[in-house]
Write a protein that binds this DNA or RNA. Structure first.
Lengths: 148, 148
DNA sequence: TTCCAAAAGATTGTGTACAATGTAATTGTA
DNA sequence: TACAATTACATTGTACACAATCTTTTGGAA
């Protein structure tokens, strides 16, 4: 266990690297299940907030998902082209683009419940560890879920 | 705390979402410090393994970083154009592309030690929590650091 | 010795991410 | 009430990330 002045730059001493790697591997693990729904991971979590809230503007979706309009604008257009959501300007304030879930989008929810079920099978953590990981990640993010 | 058949699809009940969000926010937090070195986060972790190993082929770098040639090929060309690494085919086996760190690349290491120092200041976790998060992430990845 | 399968990278195409900037609608204020 | 600042979203440009596929080189079996 040498501790020279460069040890802080070794990959094995990084906390952020396994975070980065883990996130990527998880998205990869989701892929086969989400492909069956014709969704990417980012599209999936977008649908997730819309299944709950039914209608939101782009700003609100972005606050929930930590994404900006540069990412969401093309993604929402894609979800619209798939028929899962609709995009309309608010009458009250034309700046707001209201994103609403369609019937087709709501139908997808019944198929999607299989995804968390399948994913939970391939997580190597026991219940307490998963809970603690959840807590630590939100503490790292310095807040609770923005979408509560 | 309702628990209908769709609760498994609520964002706040996801373990993978804070992982995804956390990883993104961390990369964003690195940005100002890495810009000073003319590196992106992915370029930074690539330099990190090369500061340690001095010379590796693309496959070995990919195994350390969980990246494939589709990501690494253009990234390594960019690091070469910055003068931090050199790329040469192995004489012994022409299939292997040997990536070597340059003197310029090694010089960068002295500036880079400031990065973990600055980053550690903005982590909201205490030492034990950070250690536990580290452990849980590698358990989630189902291994120890590939680059040990 | 041929020749086929495997290995290592490179390439292509799609889809994020995000900083920086642009545009239109709205709001606050002198 | 003009008009400047703010807000919401869109656009542009750069940089990953990865699946699928291609090319070249190598190693092994017939």
């Amino acid at each position: 266990m040498e501790d020279n002045k460069y040890s802080c730059l070794e990959l094995k001493n990084q906390l952020c690297f396994p975070l980065y790697a883990c996130a990527k591997e998880v998205v990869r693990a989701y892929k086969p299940y989400l492909s069956a729904l014709d969704l990417t991971y980012t599209q999936y979590i977008t649908m997730m907030v819309l299944w709950e809230k039914k209608q939101m503007n782009v700003k609100e979706i972005g606050r929930c998902l930590y994404l900006d309009s540069g990412t969401l604008t093309p993604l929402l257009k894609k979800l619209e082209s798939k028929g899962y959501i609709s995009r309309h300007r608010s009458k009250a304030d034309e700046r707001n683009l209201l994103i609403s879930i369609t019937d087709e989008g709501m139908k997808l929810r019944d198929k999607a419940v299989a995804v968390p079920r399948e994913m939970s099978k391939c997580v190597k953590l026991d219940k307490d560890e998963a809970k603690e990981l959840y807590r630590l990640l939100y503490k790292f993010l310095d807040n609770n879920c923005n979408c509560e």
